[in-house]
Amino acid sequence: MAEREKQERARRSDAPASPRSELCARPSALEQYRVLLMKDLRQELRTKEMLVSMGIYALLVIVVFGVALSFARPGADFLEVSGGLLWALVVFTSLLGLNRSFSHETENGCLEGLLLAPLDRGVVFLAKATSNLAFLAIVEVIAVPLYWVFFSSFAAPAASAPLIVVPLLLGSVGIAGIGTLLSTITASTRGKDVMLALLFVPVVFPLLYACVSATTAALAGGVLMEEAFATSLALAAGYDVVMLLASWVLYDFVVS
């Protein structure tokens, strides 16, 4: 207790004009990040709104794929298509989730409440991107095995198939990052659902291309694996780094 008082006195002497109440300490960015992230997770665990809708949507997309492929001949050729289909599943499901994730913030003007706090805007971005990534990851953990269950009869994937985890992870990170920025923009526009898709799909195109390539390489194995896998992953990682940095820097302009 004495320690605290001493700190308090020290703080006051070097910053006489500080308007901070004695009840408060200087908040740490890490703590704020943790608090914001926990808020999103707790809210989702309570309502399960996003996870349930994303999960069901993923299942529906798989059903549509089933119809689309019902006249395809099973065979090794399928492996070349399956990576792309898997990513179509991921992109559409994540679009749904991204649309939802920000509607919580705008519903009651909560975003403004957050912005009123002495809080770096980058922290808001990182917390939101992390929670989006978490939800996306959970849905993928459910949807990818489902996809395998439904379509494994078409063709047996190569031994390198488990490696698809890497492009999935890199892709999800990029989607969560740029998706958070774009969904923040579209949350306050008219016709936001369409707007997000319109912005999100072309912007995320390079990442998608790289991830599809890597996933296909992992599933098909062989020469393709040697040729394309590493390059694709490097490019996907590069996209992630560039876009995350850009989103992080630009986020301040989007929220204020």
Partner: peptide
């Protein structure tokens, strides 16, 4: 980025 990605990744098709 888009140009680099589509250019550098060899497409099998």
């Amino acid at each position: 980025i888009c140009f680099m990605v589509t250019r550098l990744i060899p497409s099998s098709i």
